[in-house]
Design a protein around this nucleic acid. Structure first.
Lengths: 202, 202
DNA sequence: GCGAAAGCGGACCGGGCGGTCAACTTGGTA
DNA sequence: TACCAAGTTGACCGCCCGGTCCGCTTTCGC
């Protein structure tokens, strides 16, 4: 369908995505296109040749990151202890976020259809991980894949509130939250699990 | 020291703070001063008469909200079951956040000395609540007040990721996290508690 | 009721943003 | 090697932002 990119264009696209991810991680959503272009060593106009709007650029970054998580999750589905697999998945997700925190980009790009599609795929993978762990008695009966999808980002978020915190403080809060997911000593939950409509997250 | 505000000025200040809180809750940090002024029914110049910068306005809002939490916490220190008191405190904090989510303002104003002072006071109150709950065996031995200070906002944050979620979904995630804080079935934590230096949070 | 001080408001400013464009350079192909 | 489509570039545009300023209005002690 679409002819392959010219060699220089492909190189610039890679540079651009890397620079954008770094810049967003450092400056948040309001990182400017001009700064991103400068960091990538390309002209501002080139950015808009590759991505029509800033939102499209953000969506491309999110797409890449979520794909990685899906691959990780699918791989873990076929391996070892189900409880360990789920925990390992959460650790990988947290490590990705720790390296570069781009969580705010997910919200900023959820309107994009490709992003919402890939997020649905991620949710399916997490559902499978949780189902397997639940069947194995590694997590309590009353939690769902959606719960984990939502809780996934919490450890980094919590650790991020500490100013000069050590880089792997998230491990502490992941452990606490995961203890809350175990069957031992679980108290009944006061609110039913949400069900996010999978087709469209409006 | 400073003479009291004129009647109209005091009224406008109240209108302004209320409008700003609403506007920030709806539009996030990038809510504009012009919109806030319009919502309050006052001129843009008047905003800057009351608060020299946008940051000062944000700090004033945060100050008010944190004071409320401190009062709540101090009150709960003298009442009933220590474990219930801590849980109740977290519920009140989450309700405040659910009504208007201004958590992003805390980060934006932490440079302000008044804000960091009042946050230190809040941390002291939470420390006391946690110490009492721990002594009573309501929470595990290896968590600290600082842990709770950081975890406090997590339930709303997690629930906020669900698009059309019911308004009190946070209760579900607070329950899960609180189960993770209980002594029953606790697994050892892989990372020590952080200690935020209280005098300055740089 | 009057005058001075306090408060008010909106036109205005400099700057930075996302996005456009037309002149220019480059890569692949016949 | 010569050509042209694809790609690049930075000056430029309109917009909106936080913040200023000064002529006007309101409050309140006397």
């Amino acid at each position: 369908m679409t002819r392959p990119l010219r060699a220089d264009a492909a190189r610039n696209r890679r540079l651009l995505l890397a620079a954008a991810a770094d810049e967003f991680a450092e400056r948040g959503l309001e990182a400017s296109i001009a700064d991103i272009a400068r960091r990538a060593g390309i002209g501002k106009g080139t950015v808009f040749r590759h991505f029509a709007t800033k939102e499209d650029l953000i969506a491309a970054i999110v797409l890449d990151r979520v794909e990685v998580l899906i691959e990780t999750g699918d791989h873990l589905l076929g391996a070892g202890d189900p409880g360990e697999a789920l925990l390992k998945f959460l650790e990988v997700a947290a490590e990705q976020r720790q390296e570069r925190d781009l969580s705010f980009l997910h919200g900023a790009s959820s309107a994009n259809t490709q992003v919402s599609q890939v997020q649905d795929r991620l949710r399916a993978t997490i559902d499978a991980l949780v189902d397997r762990a639940r069947d194995h008695g590694a997590v309590r009966d009353d939690i769902t894949g959606t719960d984990l999808f939502l809780l996934m980002c919490a450890p980094n978020y919590v650790a991020g509130y500490a100013p000069g915190a050590p880089p792997d403080l998230w491990r502490r809060y992941l452990a606490i939250i995961f203890d809350g997911l175990r069957p031992q000593g679980a108290h009944p939950l006061p609110h039913p699990a949400p069900d996010l409509l999978p087709e469209t997250n409006v």
